[in-house]
């Protein structure tokens, strides 16, 4: 693997790859939007109203608001993850679309950057839908501050897109992705403050939580929903970028090795 590890050579040629995915998505946009977005929204509204009516304020805000901020991060994480796992895997392994593209003057770096930017786009879409609900229900402190959630959402998409591409590179089949969801994504949802504040966890788990990318995402998104400037913006932003970039670079090396076999 180290033989294949090198700094990505980025070029604008990734754009037709992004565009390819966009055009395919556009054909089935309506069911795809409904399928991707209805689920987190139902959870947010169901739990927010149902469970929220039983609870006092959580971390100084109504539970629905608390959950809405968590859901922004959670649904964008899922959108990017599903895209680079199942959809990218279809294109790489099942349909061999990547092979066809690499016979044109594109490199693997371009193809995977196209996939990554597409995952970011899917995250943006998912984040915007949740944001629309936040706006519609008036769950925010300051409208203008909520606009900062948009770049946060893109960053979350980049982070989880990059990480997911690593799984894509090593997976023998679709079934393998279940491990990633069971061992990485689901624990992260429970440890990073989507449904309840991290401060409710035992100290040991809290110290794990600090290192998880979803925690950084929520630490940025939740104050923005409330209309406050988040603490440690640079630190959180850097962590999300670092996870995403490291994922992209490692995924490139692993995929290069895989495709040469």
């Amino acid at each position: 693997m180290t033989r294949h590890l090198r700094f990505p050579r980025l070029s604008w040629r990734f754009i037709p790859v992004w565009q390819r995915n966009y055009l395919v998505w556009k054909k089935l946009a309506i069911p795809s939007i409904l399928g991707n977005l209805a689920d987190p929204m139902l959870y947010m509204l169901g739990l927010g109203y149902g469970l929220g009516s039983l609870l006092p304020d959580v971390a100084g805000m109504p539970y629905l608001t608390f959950l809405a901020a968590g859901t922004v991060a959670y649904s964008t994480m899922n959108a990017a993850t599903f895209e680079v796992l199942y959809s990218s895997f279809s294109r790489m392994h099942v349909q061999r679309t990547w092979d066809a593209i690499m016979n044109a003057p594109l490199t693997l770096d371009d193809v995977m950057l196209g996939e990554l930017t597409w995952a970011v786009s899917k995250s943006l879409l998912s984040g915007l839908a949740i944001l629309a609900v936040i706006w519609g229900l008036g769950l925010y402190g300051s409208f203008w501050m909520t606009l900062w959630i948009i770049p946060v959402v893109a960053l979350v998409g980049f982070c989880f897109g990059g990480m997911g591409l690593v799984m894509n590179a090593v997976s023998p089949s679709y079934d393998f992705f279940l491990y990633y969801f069971t061992l990485v994504i689901t624990p992260m949802v429970l440890l990073c403050g989507v449904f309840f504040p991290v401060s409710q966890l035992p100290p040991l788990l809290q110290s794990v939580s600090v290192w998880l990318p979803l925690t950084h995402a929520i630490d940025l998104a939740r104050p923005l929903v409330l209309g406050k400037t988040p603490d440690d913006i640079v630190q959180h932003g850097t962590a999300l970028c670092a996870y995403g970039f490291a994922g992209y670079v490692i995924a490139l090396a692993l995929t290069r090795r895989r495709l040469l076999k």
Binding site: R13, P16, V17, Q19, R20, L23, V24, K27, Q95, R96, T97, D99, A100, I101, N103, A104, P105, L106
Partner: peptide, 23 residues
């Protein structure tokens, strides 16, 4: 290539259009 890797998400015409964009 030996194995067909046409883009199954596109029509015949769209396959050609998409491939031209890669160039």
């Amino acid at each position: 290539p030996q194995m067909d890797n046409l883009d199954p998400d596109f029509s015949v015409r769209e396959n050609l259009l998409a491939y031209g964009r890669y160039f």
